[in-house]
Simulated scan of single mutants.
Amino acid sequence: MNRKLQKLIKLVADRFVAAIMLLILSPVMLIVAIAVYFRMGSPVIFTQPRPGKDGRIFNFYKFRTMTDECDRTGNLLPDEKRLTPFGEFLRESSLDELPQLWNVLKGDMSFVGPRPLLVQYLERYSPEQARRHNVKPGITGWAQINGRRLLDGCWEEKFRLDVWYIDNWSLWLDLKILVLTVFKVLKKEDITQKGHATGEEFFGSNAEKKSNFNNLIDV
């Protein structure tokens, strides 16, 4: 099967499966939303701009897992102090990722692809690393099944895996990633980076390098 046809199949399958899953999982999402509201308040959904294919910005959705607690000066407490036990459960079970089905249905994301990171990273990538934006970001990806959050402090390796996925992509590879993701979630492997509630920030492989996305940030 040629690559162009495979891409078309992936495009159609992504949206069709996302629509079906949203219908089937809507009761679960409602229960989670109610639980988040009563345990952490509103908003229930964490929304953040993230770069997608070709660096275009979209609103990324997850169930909220941290509170908005601040110190005496009004600054947010460290992430690990704001991450609640219930929020940790949502992360371990990957239930916090369910709202991203809406991102897939809208066409912002795919089920499989490089994970969408922060907008400010666009100008920090090397040209090779920036290739991770040649495809739609995914709910899961090749880097996630080869380390998941444990790779957050190993950016070079994470981006190498993302680019490898792009160069070796096929529908069979996507299927393999999806199956392995299910096993990772069930075994609760590699959920968080040791000592961090969220991943370490990426400051760039080389402070002097700029990616070719500088002119896309304001799009």
Score class of each variant (00 low, 15 high):
Asn59Pro: 02
Gly147Ser: 09
Pro114Met: 09
Val112Phe: 04
Pro27Lys: 05
Val28Gln: 04
Arg91Pro: 06
Phe58Cys: 02
Leu25Pro: 00
Gln48Val: 12
Lys184Thr: 10
Ile217Gly: 05
Asn215Met: 12
Lys136Asn: 09
Ile139Tyr: 05
Ile9Gly: 08
Asn206Thr: 11
Arg3Trp: 06
Val182His: 02
Leu11Pro: 01
Pro78Asn: 05
Phe159Lys: 02
Asp162Pro: 05
Ile34Leu: 15
Arg115Asp: 08
Phe213Trp: 03
Ile24Pro: 00
Glu200Cys: 12
Gly55His: 04
Glu92Ile: 12
Asn134Glu: 15
Arg149Phe: 06
Tyr121Glu: 07
Pro137Ile: 06
Gln129Asn: 10
Asn212Ile: 07
Ala130Gly: 10
Leu5Glu: 13
Arg91Lys: 15
Ala130Arg: 00
Leu25Met: 02
Leu8Tyr: 13
Gln120Ser: 15
Ile166Trp: 06
Phe63Gln: 04
Glu88Asn: 15
Ile145Trp: 01
Leu122Gln: 05
Leu175Trp: 13
Pro127Lys: 06
Tyr121Trp: 14
Asp54Met: 07
Gly147Cys: 08
Val44Ile: 15
Phe89Lys: 14
Arg82Lys: 09
Val112Tyr: 01
Phe60Val: 01
Met109Asp: 03
Cys154Ser: 15
Met21Thr: 06
Asn103Ile: 03
Phe38Asp: 08
Ser170Gly: 11
Met21Arg: 00
Gln48Cys: 12
Asn214Thr: 14
Val32Phe: 00
Leu117Thr: 11
Ser170Ile: 10
Leu30Phe: 06
Ile20Cys: 12
Asp162Phe: 04
Gly87Pro: 02
Tyr125Phe: 10
Leu11Asp: 13
Lys194Asn: 14
Glu128Asn: 10
Lys158Pro: 06
Arg56Tyr: 07
Tyr121Arg: 05
Tyr61Asp: 03
Ile34Glu: 09
Lys158Tyr: 05
Asp79Ser: 08
Pro43Ile: 10
Glu157Cys: 01
Leu30Gly: 11
Gln6Thr: 07
Val219Ile: 14
Val12Pro: 07
Trp169Glu: 11
Leu22Gln: 00
Ala143Gly: 11
Gln48Thr: 11
Phe58Asn: 01
Arg148Ala: 10
Asn134Thr: 09
Thr67Asn: 10
Asp68Glu: 13
Phe202Pro: 03
Glu200Lys: 15
Asp54Pro: 04
